[in-house]
């Protein structure tokens, strides 16, 4: 039900590299899973949904501005630097206070 070509497209969209072996077994697994969930297509369902009440309850609040707990706290200045360090420490590569990544644009563009 899913072709190798479709699967390759999904892998590109999901940014995941697949080997040829992966593709063969995934096509088989997709068939079995889609075969099961496709039964849903037979259910008589009102797709308009205007009469539906089953959704979980929405929660509203007053739209009032308030400062965040951290920003409002006295030790904000002290924790700000520490939090930034903790976050940057987890990055695979950094330059100073920035997360370093490869250049996205291959060559300079003349405007």
């Amino acid at each position: 039900m899913v072709t190798i070509k479709e699967l390759e497209h999904l892998a590109v969209l999901s940014r995941i590299q697949l080997t040829d072996e992966d593709k063969v077994s995934l096509v088989k697994e997709f068939d079995s899973i889609l075969g099961y969930i496709d039964q849903l297509k037979k259910v008589d369902v009102d797709m308009d949904g205007s009469s539906r009440v089953g959704a979980v309850k929405n929660v509203m609040r007053e739209d009032v501005a308030s400062s965040s707990e951290i920003v409002g706290s006295a030790d904000f200045a002290a924790t700000k630097g520490e939090t930034r360090e903790r976050l940057l420490d987890e990055a695979p590569d950094r330059e100073g206070d920035f997360v370093a990544v490869k250049k996205i644009i291959a060559q300079d563009i003349k405007l």
Binding site: S14, I33, L40, M47, G49, R52, V53, V56
Partner: peptide, 30 residues
């Protein structure tokens, strides 16, 4: 699961899978 999720959300399948599933989800809750 990432690939399966990408499939059911992709153009052309979205109504048949994701939207329909949400509608049936409401019927179950009811």
């Amino acid at each position: 699961r990432i690939l399966l999720g990408t499939y059911v959300l992709s153009s052309g399948y979205y109504d048949a899978y994701y939207n329909r599933a949400n509608a049936v989800r409401c019927m179950i809750t009811e």
